[in-house]
């Protein structure tokens, strides 16, 4: 599903990723962890095609992201959900509209969009908040809107960047349960987190990043 070969990424003199080699199989659930600044966000953004590696290459479902065309990448993104660390919600749209957007861009029927959007919002515990605007919500609620938007399209790959960073332990558990159920439906899931407690009682595959390098795996 995801393959990285000798991937380097630097921002000017700042090296964010150094010689990263990685393979994630279809249907896997992987944690990426490491201290702040280790390169977790950069790694996910590269996998998402939001950035290009400085050198090395990345294959997603066999497609080389270095060579991908704009349109092909757009179509790929319809199958990849991304939960952004900073949510990236539109303040001028309601919660419902924000989530529905992910389906509307693919030209789905309005009835289908409505049904799926309601389901996704219910799954993240936001039923009843459809007509509220993001800025009227707490950080944790906004984060869950972002999660709903990522999962609403039944992605084949879900990338989540610190998806529980703003949630209390109880909600964190709920979201992890949600991710597991999405995983069980066949979606490959990659979660980046610096929260050690998220990983303590899990037997999931975990990749440790430090200063842009893979320093271990569990």
């Amino acid at each position: 599903m995801i393959q990285l070969f000798h991937v380097y990424k630097s921002f000017d003199a700042n090296v964010a990723l150094k010689d990263v080699n990685l393979k994630v199989r279809e249907g896997e659930f992987v944690f990426v962890t490491g201290p702040s600044g280790a390169g977790k966000t950069t790694l996910l953004r590269l996998i998402f095609g939001a950035e290009k590696p400085t050198s090395g290459y990345i294959l997603i479902s066999g497609i080389n992201l270095n060579r991908i065309r704009r349109l092909q990448l757009d179509l790929l993104r319809r199958k990849v959900g991304f939960v952004f660390q900073d949510f990236k919600l539109l303040p001028s749209k309601t919660v419902f509209e924000n989530v529905a957007l992910a389906l509307e861009v693919s030209g789905h029927k309005p009835s289908f969009v409505r049904k799926k959007t309601r389901q996704a919002l219910k799954a993240v515990g936001l039923a009843g908040k459809e007509e509220v605007y993001p800025l009227q919500l707490s950080g944790g609620e906004q984060q869950r809107v972002a999660i709903a938007r990522a999962v609403v399209k039944d992605p084949i790959l879900l990338l989540a960047d610190e998806p529980t960073g703003n949630l209390d332990p109880e909600l964190t558990q709920e979201i992890m349960v949600l991710f597991r159920s999405i995983h069980l439906s066949g979606t490959t899931v990659v979660v980046a987190t610096h929260a050690r407690e998220l990983l303590e009682d899990t037997a999931q595959r975990t990749i440790f990043l430090e200063k842009g390098q893979v320093v271990g795996e569990k």
Binding site: A50, R70, L71, D74, L75, L76, R77, R78, K79, V80, F82, F84, K88, L89, L90, S92, L101, A102, V105, S106, R149, K153
Partner: peptide, 16 residues
């Protein structure tokens, strides 16, 4: 700009 960025992130084509 933000809206366009997000549209692109959720898989909107350029023409869309």
């Amino acid at each position: 700009q933000d809206e366009i960025e997000i549209l692109k992130l959720v898989g909107a084509t350029d023409w869309f």
